[in-house]
Computed example of a mutant assay.
Amino acid sequence: MVRFKNRWILVEFIPITQGTAQLGKSTVGSANSIDGKAIWSALKQSVLNNFGDTGWGAVGLSLTVKYFSPTTNICIIRVARDQHNIAWGALTLLTSIDGTRYLPNVVHVSGTIRHAQLAAIAHNREVIARYRALAENPAAYQDSYNTFLESTEREIEALQD
Results as ranks from 00 to 15, higher is better:
Ile77Leu: 08
Ile97Ala: 03
Ala58Pro: 01
Val65Thr: 08
Phe148His: 13
Leu159Gln: 11
His115Arg: 08
Leu91Asn: 08
His123Asp: 13
Ala116Leu: 11
Lys66Met: 12
Gln142Thr: 14
Val107Met: 06
Ala122Tyr: 03
Thr92Gln: 11
Arg81Gly: 00
Ala129Leu: 07
Ser151Ala: 14
Ile86Ser: 01
Asn85Pro: 07
Ile77Arg: 11
Asn105Glu: 05
Asn124Trp: 01
Ala116Met: 07
Thr71Gln: 03
Leu94Thr: 14
Thr64Ile: 05
Ile74His: 05
Gln117Asn: 08
Asn73Val: 00
Ala135Glu: 11
Leu103Ala: 12
Asn73Phe: 02
Thr147Trp: 09
Thr95Ala: 00
Thr152Val: 14
Ser69Met: 02
Leu61Met: 01
Val107Ala: 00
His84Ala: 03
Gln117His: 13
Thr95Cys: 02
Ile97Pro: 01
Val65Tyr: 06
Arg130His: 13
Asn137Val: 15
Ala90Ile: 08
Lys66Ala: 05
Asn85Ile: 12
Ala140Trp: 15
Leu134Gly: 15
Tyr141Asp: 12
Ala90Asn: 09
Asp143Pro: 03
Val59Asp: 02
Leu63Ile: 02
Val79Tyr: 01
Arg114Gln: 12
Gly55Cys: 11
Val106Arg: 00
Ile113Tyr: 09
Ala80Gln: 05
Ala120Phe: 03
Thr100Phe: 01
Ser151His: 12
Ala58Phe: 04
Leu91Met: 14
His108Met: 10
Arg125Trp: 09
Gln83Asn: 11
Arg81Phe: 07
Glu150Ile: 10
Ala139Glu: 15
Ala80Phe: 05
Asn124Leu: 12
Ala139Ile: 13
Arg125Leu: 15
Ile97Asn: 01
Ile121Asn: 05
Asn73Glu: 04
His115Leu: 12
Ala129Asp: 15
Val59Gln: 02
Trp88Glu: 08
Ser96Met: 07
Ile113Trp: 05
Leu134His: 15
Ile76His: 02
Asn137Gln: 10
Ile86Cys: 03
Gln83Asp: 14
Glu150Cys: 03
Gly57His: 11
Ile86Asn: 06
Val79Gly: 07
Gln142Ile: 11
Leu61Lys: 06
His123Thr: 13
Val107Thr: 10
Thr71His: 02
